[in-house]
Design a binder for these strands. Sequence first.
DNA 1: AGCACGCCGACT
DNA 2: GTCGGCGTGCTC
Length: 803
Amino acid sequence: MKIASVIVDVPAKQTDRAFDYLIPTEWLETIQPGMRVIVPFGPRKIQGFVTEIKADSEFKKLREIIEPMDLEPVLNRELLDLGNWLTINTLCFKIYAYQAMLPAALKAKYEKKVKLSTGVKLNQLPAQLQEVFKNQEAIQWDDALENGLVPILQREAAKGLLEVLYIVKEKLKKKKLKYVIPLLSSGDLETASNGLPQKAEKQKEVLKYFVEHSDPVELRQLLSHLNISSSTVKALVEKGFIAEQDMEVYRDPYEKRTFTRTEPLLLTEDQQRAMVPILGSIENKRHEVFLLYGVTGSGKTEIYLQTIQDVIEKGKEAIVLVPEIALTPQMVNRFKGRFGNLVAVLHSGLSAGEKYDEWRKIQRKEVKVVVGARSAIFAPFENLGIIIIDEEHETSYKQEEMPRYHARDVAIERARNNNCPVVLGSATPALESFARAQKGVYTLLSLPNRMNKRALPAVEIVDMREELRAGNRSMFSRKLFDLLKERIERKEQSVLFLNKRGHSSFVMCRDCGYVMNCPNCDISLTYHKVKDQMKCHYCGFESWVPNQCPECASDYIRYFGTGTQKVEEELGKILPEAKVIRMDVDTTGQKGAHERLLKEFHEGKADILLGTQMIAKGLDFPNITLVGVLSADTMLHLPDFRSSEKTFQLLTQVSGRAGRHELPGEVIIQTYTPEHYSIELAGTQDFDRFYHREMMMRKAHHYPPFYYLSLITISHEELMTVVSATEKIAAFVRSRLSNHAVVLGPAASPIPRINNRYRYHCLIKYKREPELNKTLKAILDQYQSDPKSGLLVSIDVNPFILM
DNA sequence: AGCACGCCGACT
DNA sequence: GTCGGCGTGCTC
């Protein structure tokens, strides 16, 4: 057993397979599957993942592994297999699958340098290079490239005077602090202290400290605590009484916060009824998927907490997925409050180092629960007892880059491997999930009542066309204005929600209607306040804001503020006495700003919280009695078959923010299409009726959950080339699938050009096509192995965004 | 993805 | 003759 199969860190079609390496004798005991290693690959050194250890190889001329990068595997057996599963199901390279499972800090960084070969004297080099190597042993390849030194360096390297170095680096170091530990027992330390010269007072003090405390202590703390300098410590180290040691410490983002310990709450009858089957599944180690369908405020979180409690008592572990946007301090508090430091938290707000440290806690089995966004589904637990996905309908569970996985699918796969249940929780389940529950594929658990038996807030839908007819041209209906005024007088709080889409900040000429578009992409440029520039979201193109219209030279060209900004201005005019907190990308940019603003609002420092998507979730403050949705239908008209579903979910979600506590709540939804069923039914919070209406639509148009989708997107610099390639691909797919499948296309992508590349796509709708995966793989194989055609093909199995 | 190797045209 | 352009194919 001295050969390792390694997946190398080269994302390409031709290297998407295992390469075999000899394990050097000194590492025979160390190297195991799941470890990262440094291997020679051609002339370079690169990172790789060991997937298997075996006795022999087909390949004759094996090279040796250079060294392991880990002391213990970073991927366990289950995750290695899961990586394989991901590769097959999302059609991605194996290396992408493995990298997606690890914190970014573990991704390798490569350096290429040139140095003088050993034994070579400086004066053997040409004068120009002598100058370069006079002050440094090695130079960075990139620097040489910039200074045009590469040809001459290569010439000397060919003669053997210079050597090219390839270095694989860890992106991030473990954070280490210097600690001091006593090397003798406290009795011996006392003796040692007595043996010191009289005048070594400081040293005696240190030893006295260790007589009293035998635990390691951080050097810095010791120095300041005893008011001594490091030379004192050094002297004692030299005498062999104590030692300095580097110890790994965690960057704990929640270090400074204290969590109030909470106890399990008494469950309502509904909650108990819902919990029994989950506990049964845990008890019998049975894989089962539960859909926990409960209105907002019905106490889903308490069920999560108590089932996790049970899992922990059985010595197992739990993963809780929460949408990124809902990973608020409130949410974290609930878990940390119940399980203390048995909880690790993973979300994008953490620095790379903090994320790595939280991950290390999981890997070292120091925690039992991980609460995190999408990628937390890959937490390296070995004995999973439950996986919970809160707000399971959230689109952020789908990753849009490779590997294009949906956390729900991965969760079910992992739970199957671990024989444990999955709980999908939502007040507005995804249609796919609810349909599966109806069919009995998932077990449906309902929580139809709010915990406090409080009625859902009264929702009123306001027709903005009526307002316009009545001469009200403001963005606030008279009703909403009256209610806002009333809240301010009653010292209650309101939340105003603005659907960002459709209100993005673009520049438009008021005279001719000219909109500033990106020259490379067919999409309008977005105004960025911070830099006072126009920027393209897709290719990064930047431009100054014109003060004259380039089309008609009108001066009446202006940008339409970020929506929220505009609303804030208008609020200032009509309700000058109101204190407003605005939350959007602009005001929550800095770290901690999000939390700070919410805290201010919670403390009653403002009357109105105005914001975008980000305030739709998790907000749970007792004093909120009014929620206003300024324009409910902005996302309804997007070219997306899920737009009705998303609108319904969002409106229901937002409505749930009002009247969660003592005071009753009211909701105003402003819209131009009050007759649309997703708005009308969100008004009555009637998921069941919405479900039936929407299912009819989906059935009629052959969309999920009746059909599965796969989307092939093809791009090229030349329009004609894309069209013909897409035609060819569509024809190929048609020829390989049954006639139950529907193959749409070629059609221009909703964003027809990005970064000067035209984009066409082909949408496949199907029910059961055993040949599909092979067909798609074949398409990728052909186009990925032929990069010179300039065609880029990307495939998304079960896409969420059809763009 | 890099990188070497190899074959062709343009230059000292 | 040789330098350097990029097309081709390989990396255990």
